[in-house]
Amino acid sequence: MTVASALEMALAAVVLGVATWTIAARETFAAVVGFVTYGLLLALIWVRLDAVDVALVEAAIGGGLGGVLLLGAAARLRVTETPTATERPSATVRVGAALLSAAVAAALATGVILLPDPAPTLAPAAAANATATGLGNPVTNVLMAFRAMDTMLEKVVLLLALVGVWSLAPDRLWGGHPGPRHRADPLGTLAFLARLLPPVGIVVGIYVFWTGKDHPGGAFQGGTILAAMWLLVMMAGIADAPQVSSRRLRIVLIAGPGIFLAVGLAGFAIGSAFLAYPVAYAKPLILGIEVAMTLTIAATLGLLLAGAPERSAGQ
């Protein structure tokens, strides 16, 4: 057994251990911390599988923004934690849940074991057509050209999720500022970090987006870093979250899917089909879509974490 495979096995064992602990943890807060650790360790596994693009997303979403989202939920649920902990579901419910979970796990395991070897793959076809777009990163090729439809719809889903969060606002606060107004000591540590880090983080976010055309990275990863910087500034109380009725904000939110859709429809005129890029302009078109998408993703993720409108304008 080589050192590398021993390391991988140890890593897999730790991931399984953390996963079990996350489920078994009685306290919501502890479970969330376990989930964040799980996401970061999973990112390491993706790196070992040479899927660096996936690893970046897992670390940024699973370990980062997803963790913050769950921490916020855990904080809101803290009041109800003691009453729910004393309630025990009936034996029937617990046995039913256990059976259902075991059945799902067994079905998944059977599916994985029964996969033909070698597994069906479109990777050779994607690699053979890699030159068509002028981009060097095969993952970006698949996301932005070969399966562009999925990526576009994914952005629409993100927007729908935000609409879902906003719809939790009571009528009188509609159009107001999302979330509580954060007030930190203006001379304190958090405010200092929120002034020091964003210049670096913004450069890194744009770099991760830009390098995604030829290397691991891309709009989602870059946008997540930008969102994290924005959230840091909001949490330190330096800038308030914008009113959800702001027209400029709405334009940024629809820019990504909007431009994607416009280019897709233009494909009927200048290309051969919906979302078909003319070969000569494929690269600039894809990069143009990605610039808009990076901004949209950053704004959407930031607002998803900021929450539903809780304060009317000026409050």
């Binding site: 807060f29 855990a74 904080a75 803290r78 009041v79 509580p180 107004r181 954060h182 007030r183 930190a184 000591d185 304190g188 540590t189 958090l190 949490m235 109380g237």
Partner: peptide
């Protein structure tokens, strides 16, 4: 450390509201 020693500045970020 500040949280642990109980001198937090931002009430909105406290877990207990």
């Amino acid at each position: 450390a500040r949280e642990a020693s109980g001198q937090r500045g931002d009430p909105a970020m406290r877990h207990d509201g």
